[in-house]
Each structure stands twice: as C-alpha cells, then as structure tokens.
Write a protein that binds this DNA or RNA. Structure first.
Lengths: 336, 336
DNA sequence: CTGAAAGCGCTTACAG
DNA sequence: CTGAAAGCGCTTACAG
C-alpha cells in the first residue's frame, strides 16, 4: 500500500504547524497570503489529495445523501436521481444510490447501512411491499432527515415529495372522457401506498365530476408484475361490458397491458386507449405507444426532494421540530 | 444534533475499557463469553450503531468501490451495476455509483472525488469522448485499483472487462449471412475506444471469412446521438447498392435506425434486418423489434469486474505488480 | 482475558 | 498571523 501525502508531511517540510497548513489549504482568512501560496504550491507539487473520509469524520458529517430506489431499470427513478444529483453537486454533497429491488428486508438493510455510514439525509422510494414505519423511525432516532419520494406509505408524519397524484389522475381521466371513453378501467398500485390511494382518489373524483357511477368491477390492484397485470386484463376483458380504456398506476403497467392485448386480444389491441403515470424515454422507440402519459417531471421531483433534504439538514442546527411537508410537483399529460 | 451512543459510553457504563468493548462487539476471540454478552446486551438496549465512517477511517479502508457509468438511462449499465452489487454485498462492501453523463470533464471530477474519498477500487465505463489516460494514472498513483468496464480506451496497461466483442460481431454477422444478407452496414462507435475497434475487427473478420470484400462505404462512425445515426442511415440508403442489414455498435443505435427507417423509408422498415450489442429489457415492449441482439451478459460482466477489483485489492497487500488482465465474458446472439 | 496507549488525518477553539 | 492541544470514534499491537 502506497500512502499518500498528508497535511503533516507538508507541515514538516515547510516548518509549519499542521493547523496552519490545514487553514491555508482551506483558505482560512487568518492565514497570510504568503503562507497560503507556499502551502498550496507544495501541495500541488506533491499531489496532495485531502482525505475526505478524515474530514468528514472530524466534522461529524458525511456530506453524503443516501438515495434508496426500488429498481434502476425503471427509468423513472433514474431521471429522479439525476435531479437529486444536480442539487447535491451544487451543495458539494455526494449521492449514494442503492436499490432495494422491491425487497422490503433488503430495504431495511440498506437503511441500516446508511445509518451506520452516517449519511446526512435519505431520500427513499419505498418498495411496493413496504408498509411498516419501524425502519423509518430508526432514521429519525439517529437524527437523519428522510423524505419519501414518489411512493410513500401511509405515514403523514414524514416528509413526502411526489407528483400531484390526484391531479394527474384527473388529467388522465378527463383526456379519456374527451376521447369518448366512459368505461375506463383502473389498474391501481398496492393499496397501502399513499400514492396508490391518491391516484385512485383522482380516478373516483373524475368519475364523480363527470357523473359516471363508480364501478368496482373496473378496478384491479396490481403489483407491477406481468402476471398480475395479465390476470387483471383477462378478468376485465371478460366483463359483459368491458373497458374501452385503461388508466394505469404507471406506464410500465400500461406497456404490459398493450403487450397482453397484442398477444391475447389482437382485435382490441389498436383500439384500446391507455394512459399511465410516467413519461418514459423508452416510449419513443415504441410503435404501438400508449395514447398518452402523465409526465411526472421526475427530474424536478428529484430536485425538490433534494432541496427539502438540504432544508432539513440546515434546520437540524436550529433544532426546532419542523412540521412534515408534502410537496406536490405539478404534472401534465403528454399525448404520444 | 442528537449524538448517538458510542463505544465509550458503553465502556463507561460497564466499567470496562473501550478496547474490550470494541473487541467484544467484533467477536474477538480473546474476549470472554460473559463480557461479550454483557456488552452486546447493552449495545442492543441502547441501540448502539457503529460509526462505519470512524472504522473505515481508522482502518484506512473505505470498504467502498466506486463505479462510474456514462448514463444510467441505458439499461445495459444498470444490469452491470446489479452484478457489481451482488459481489460487493458478499464482500461486505458498499458500491457508490456515479454518472459521467458522457462528459469527460465531469468524469475527471468524479475520479478526483473518488480519490478524495479514498474508495478502495474503481470500475469505470468511460465516456464516448474519453481518450486521455491522465486521470486513470492518477488513480494508479493514489494506489487505487481500476478496471475498465465494457468500454475502454486504448491503454492495455489497465485491466479491462468486456464482452467478447470480436466474437459477438462474428456471431451477428454470421447470423445475418445465414439470413441471406451480403450488404451489411456497420454503424461503429467512436474509433478511439478499444471496444469500437474490436467490434469493427469482428465485422471485417466475418466478411473475410465469408469471402466478401470489405466496403468502406458501408461503415459509418456514430456517437450514439440520434442525429449522427440519422445522417449515417441517410447516406447509406442513398448508395447505389444500399445495405439490406445493419450491424450496430449497440442496440440503442439499432433502435434509432428502426425509428428512422419507419419515418423516412417506410417501405424498407419491415425488411431491414438489424442486430446490435445489448439485449435490453425494453425490447420486450417493442412491436417492431430488431432481428436479434448480442446478449453481452452485462450482469455477469459486472460480477467479473467486481471480482477482478477485489482480487486487485487483495493483491495490494502482496505488493507485487500484477499484469493487466483482459477478461472476455462470452456473449451469445438472441433472436427476437 | 483485559486495559492503557497510540494513532488514523484532519479541524477548530484557544492562547499567544 | 501562527501554533499547541484536544479530539472526532474507533482498532490494534503490546503489556500485564
């Protein structure tokens, strides 16, 4: 193991104290210009690279925010991460991204790991199976701010950044109404997620506003696996009065619907109108596109989540208990 | 700021030394069972969470490997990360993923950052604009092992894990030959990437084996932007004897070709056979699929890269200078 | 089996 | 403007 140059090495060479070198490198105002120059020159020559680990340790801050996402193969989360990164870079923070792979146990482990590593804040989109608040309370106890991102369990005591789920649902439904649809199925997400409830609420509200009676038979819960979506579509298509359109929790589910229709109900495939949450980059490559998507502006959501985390970090020093925030980022329908 | 329980707190309460507590928590063999029990019990009660930052700092290891990828919207890289993660978890290591966003300057900054944070190893897929070895030498100087992943510049002194690029190209070409194609265009990647050269070599080798003269006019360099692919396709389609098939550096380029053909040459769209590197999950949703893809087994590549990094980390202690390795992970053609 | 001591590389009051 | 000292939370030879 080679070991690098340290502040001590520089101090010795220059006949200075380590404190002076440290301050010089950090441009501390009390240090003379000449000293700063000498120190920086040698640091340069010797390719001194500060040990951030040591700095963080000493300062009792990791300058790192942890992000836990269910699955990065879902481009929605990648866009969000890009937003988080942008804000983090501006604040000279690092971002550590982990995937729970929709596994709640694994998620617990990741949170534990983040606490052990003393990240300064956590942004998390929970798994589709997460309902317990236990692990989030542990973050609280450890004094680490956390915000739910996009997906949240029913726990209003935590911060939550999301798209305006209800409004997005309204936009989707109204668009479908305008296209003449009246029998619109809703494939909703896991019911213990606030997010699912909010989108479902929008669905019902849209129907009510339009004066269309709510029909439970048109709603199915899915867990985003193809299997469940297959089952749901099959059941719905067997109805006496089957739906003519689908409003799905997310576009990936909509893509599965399209695929299933193409395979099992080729006659219907072209006619069915489909809208879901998530304007995914991959849609551009599809020939058989969904009719539209709710653009959640996930990059912006990432930005807002990161900003909220930084606010919370700042507020820690003020040590007043802040009220939980629910930030809704506007969304808009995009027609393909 | 709340501060957590430390080893010292536990030691004080139990009238022990911090060394004993530390050893007890780490199951050091020299500590009595009784002591271990007492320590662990209190640690549990008090919700002691070890400060990994401190441990890493003390041990002069971050137990972290850094991964730099061009862009996580490309699912190929996400699959690779999953492979890296799997190996890392087994070794009790963390993985820190950063994106260069195909920006070479930014890449330099990320490497710098990883050195500052003293990661134990780096896996990197370079940007499409990277050609300079400078920054990689800095990692060397800092004593941090690095392996090029998938994409590499021409610098055989570094480790490199990649699919068997030449063989993949041969498979693609032979498949197209079997389909009856003789005029096969190649959209190749940036020429200063070893990867591009290797795939191009396979292309030429396949032609030679088949006794088909190599025609420079059928080759175009692209930088993966749609614009360049559009230009290339337009030029190729204007040839007196235009290609009947495309072998592309990667499937995303192939998808762009399909899109362009659909828009500009609808008559040709269905007939053109297209094969590229990368069996992407999103292909399942396409109706208008490429004919096939070279499955690079990116998860496995991630696994191999991580294993190589861990080998290198272990070898550091032995401090003999190891020879650079070029690991080729087998690939196979997948027909859609 | 347990503990005292040194130290990882820095930063930051504090004194001069 | 500079420096001596303490210390962040741990681990690890070493002594007993």
């Amino acid at each position: 193991m080679k070991k690098g140059v340290t502040i001590k090495d520089i101090a010795r060479k220059l006949n200075m104290s380590v404190s002076t070198v440290s301050k010089a490198l950090n441009d501390h105002p009390s240090i003379s210009v000449l000293t700063k120059e000498r120190v920086k020159k040698l640091a340069d020559e010797w390719v001194y690279i500060p040990n951030e680990a040591a700095r963080h340790f000493k300062q009792n801050k990791s300058f790192t925010i942890g992000v836990i996402m269910p699955d990065l193969l879902d481009q929605f989360y990648v866009l969000a991460i890009n937003g988080v990164e942008e804000v983090a870079v501006k604040n000279n923070y690092n971002v550590v991204v982990s995937q729970s792979h929709e596994d709640s146990e694994r998620e617990t482990g990741l949170i534990e790991n983040m606490i052990r590593n003393r990240v300064d804040g956590v942004i998390i989109a929970v798994t589709k199976k997460t309902w317990n608040t236990e692990k989030f309370k542990r973050l609280n106890t450890a004094g680490i701010p956390m915000v739910f991102f996009s997906r949240s369990i029913s726990a209003p005591e935590f911060d939550y950044v999301s798209t305006d789920n209800e409004d997005g649902a309204l936009q989707a439904m109204n668009f479908l109404f305008n296209e003449g649809h009246r029998r619109i199925a809703h494939l909703m997400g896991p019911p213990f997620l606030r997010t699912s409830q909010q989108r479902f609420d929008g669905y019902k509200k849209a129907l009510a506003q339009k004066g269309i009676p709510f029909d439970t038979g048109l709603v199915a819960e899915v867990d985003f696996t193809q299997q469940q979506t297959v089952d749901a579509v099959k059941r719905l298509m067997k109805l006496k009065d089957p739906p003519t359109a689908f409003f799905t929790f997310k576009s990936y589910v909509g893509l599965d619907v399209i695929k299933i229709l193409r395979e099992k109900y080729p006659k219907m495939a072209g006619k069915m109108s489909i809208i879901g949450f998530g304007n995914l980059p991959l849609i551009q490559y599809l020939e058989d596109k969904p009719m539209g998507s709710i653009d959640e502006n996930s990059f912006q959501m990432g930005v807002e989540a990161a900003q909220l985390i930084f606010d919370r970090i700042d507020q820690q020093e003020a040590d007043e208990e802040p009220k939980p925030k629910f930030i809704k980022v506007p969304c808009k329908i995009v027609v393909h």
